[in-house]
Design a binder for these strands. Structure first.
Length: 271
DNA sequence: ATGGTTGTCATACAA
């Protein structure tokens, strides 16, 4: 069987509910992981999302900021959230697919929203940057315990770090810009490799191909300037490498009316 | 070196 998994920082699920609908209709993933739903739980558009053909939905939100959700065509046998950095700020949610997902039964899918980290890349001057690094530190300790060996697993999300040289439009010009500083890129690469996760996007589209999943709203013409970054990621456990069939980045959604600043990334796996 | 935009919630703040 084939399983299609997408990740998208939607930047307000309520404002962009029609774009979610359009993406689901056009790309037809089995599972969609959302970040930055910016929606308290009691205002989450649960029924509407279910009506798009995704009866199984878990979400964890808060007022105004953050928030993650997972929509699925298949039921879950287990769901949980982690509190990172001692804050209940809705930055993680995980599901395990139930036996009704057939060959993908037992597959664990983690959805993360790593803190953006503010503007100043200095832990002493910027509490947000300190929080981001601490978050990655906790990811590292956690990832070590959860070494993906026997249990197949996928980790997706807006990790807010563009780790490689060709994950940004200008490696040189972004070395002191939050998301591409050496302390962040080293931390992300180390925690990924230490836990045995495979960077699925780069496995199928190796450097030096440029890959971006985010373009700032502040650029007057994002398409012409093309000053993007690869902030959104799909990682798979080592035992899932062979199941990877394709990766695609839905760049076209950035050109839709009132777009998110992030675009969806989709992996197709075959079991 | 600076400011550029967007979303939430209603005035700054986060990204």
């Amino acid at each position: 069987m084939k399983l299609t998994v997408s990740t998208w920082n939607i930047n307000s699920v309520r404002l962009r509910i029609d774009q979610v609908k359009r993406f689901l209709k056009e790309r037809r993933p089995d599972v969609l992981c959302l970040q930055e739903t910016k929606c308290p739980n009691d205002k989450f558009p649960l029924k509407e999302l279910q009506s798009f053909g995704y009866p199984f939905v878990v979400h964890m939100g808060q007022k105004g900021y953050n928030g993650v959700a997972i929509l699925s065509r298949y039921p879950f046998s287990d769901t949980s959230v982690m509190e990172m950095c001692g804050r209940s700020d809705a930055r993680h949610i995980t599901v395990t697919l139930s036996p009704q997902a057939k060959a993908a039964s037992g597959l664990v899918i983690h959805n993360f929203y790593v803190p953006a980290g503010g503007d100043i890349p200095d832990q002493n001057l910027n509490e947000k940057f300190r929080h981001k690094l601490q978050f990655m530190d906790e990811l590292r300790s956690w990832g070590g315990r959860q070494k993906p060996t026997a249990t197949p697993a996928i980790l997706v999300g807006d990790l807010n770090v563009a780790p490689l040289e060709h994950d940004v439009w200008s490696h040189k010009q972004l070395l002191d810009v939050v998301s591409h500083t050496p302390v962040e890129t080293a931390a992300l690469e180390e925690l990924r490799q230490e836990a045995g996760w495979v960077d699925a996007m780069r496995l199928l589209k190796p450097e030096p191909e440029k890959i971006y999943s985010w373009w700032s709203y502040r650029s007057p013409d994002w398409e012409a300037a093309n000053k993007g970054r690869r902030l959104d990621h799909i990682w798979v456990s080592d035992n899932m490498k062979g199941a990877l069939r394709s990766i695609d980045v839905s760049r076209e959604t950035r050109g839709w009316e009132r777009p998110s600043d992030h675009v969806p990334v989709t992996a197709v796996l075959e079991f």
